[in-house]
Simulated scan of single mutants.
Amino acid sequence: MQISVDVHNYMETLVGQVLAKPEFVDHFDHEQLADLACLALSQLRPVYIRHDIDFLSALPEERLVTLKTYSQVAVDAAVGMIVDDRRKQRKDEVPVIFSKQRFDDDIELEWFEKPILKKEK
């Protein structure tokens, strides 16, 4: 069994359907759509399944409508983060501060740093 092949998150399918609508495809580039998908999926509870057809045949229509609504709401919330992207306002002149760690080999280890050794009998 390979999890990435045999099992998938059905919410990815629903978020993909929302993002395939012209209102998103026409207004966002590929990178932004990927960011939207990540942000939306992070807000949703995953629904892991093996086969879409088996899942959908056992799923009540009310629940499917609810899951689709959740997906739409999550994408709409993610749009605000993409539109108001703070990364666009950054300057390339970010100060870099390097710090040098100093280790004193003569200091005794803390109790949580000491290795656990088996006692010899």
Rank of each mutant, 00 (worst) to 15 (best):
Q2C: 12
I3E: 15
S4V: 02
S4Q: 13
V5W: 12
D6H: 14
D6V: 15
D6P: 04
V7G: 01
H8S: 08
N9L: 10
N9R: 07
N9V: 07
N9Q: 07
Y10R: 04
Y10M: 06
M11G: 05
M11V: 02
E12M: 05
E12A: 05
T13W: 04
L14P: 03
L14R: 06
V15A: 06
G16L: 08
G16Q: 05
Q17T: 06
Q17E: 14
L19N: 02
A20V: 00
A20L: 06
K21T: 06
K21V: 01
P22N: 09
F24M: 03
D26S: 14
H27M: 08
F28Y: 10
D29P: 01
D29A: 04
D29T: 00
D29F: 04
H30S: 14
Q32T: 01
Q32R: 06
Q32W: 00
L33M: 10
L33P: 06
A34N: 15
D35Y: 02
L36C: 01
L36A: 01
L36V: 03
L36M: 04
C38A: 13
C38D: 14
C38Q: 14
C38G: 11
L39Y: 11
L39M: 15
A40M: 07
L41R: 12
L41P: 09
S42I: 01
S42V: 02
S42M: 13
Q43N: 12
Q43T: 09
L44P: 09
L44F: 07
R45T: 13
P46C: 05
P46R: 07
P46M: 04
V47E: 06
V47C: 06
Y48F: 14
Y48L: 10
I49T: 02
R50L: 08
R50W: 10
H51K: 12
H51R: 13
D52M: 05
D54Q: 09
F55K: 00
F55H: 04
S57L: 03
S57D: 08
A58R: 15
L59D: 09
E62G: 15
E62K: 15
E62W: 11
L64K: 11
L64G: 07
L64S: 11
L64N: 09
L64E: 14
V65E: 12
V65M: 08
V65H: 10
T66G: 04
L67D: 09
Q72K: 10
Q72E: 13
Q72Y: 08
V73F: 00
V73Q: 06
A74S: 00
A74M: 00
A74T: 01
A74Y: 01
A74H: 00
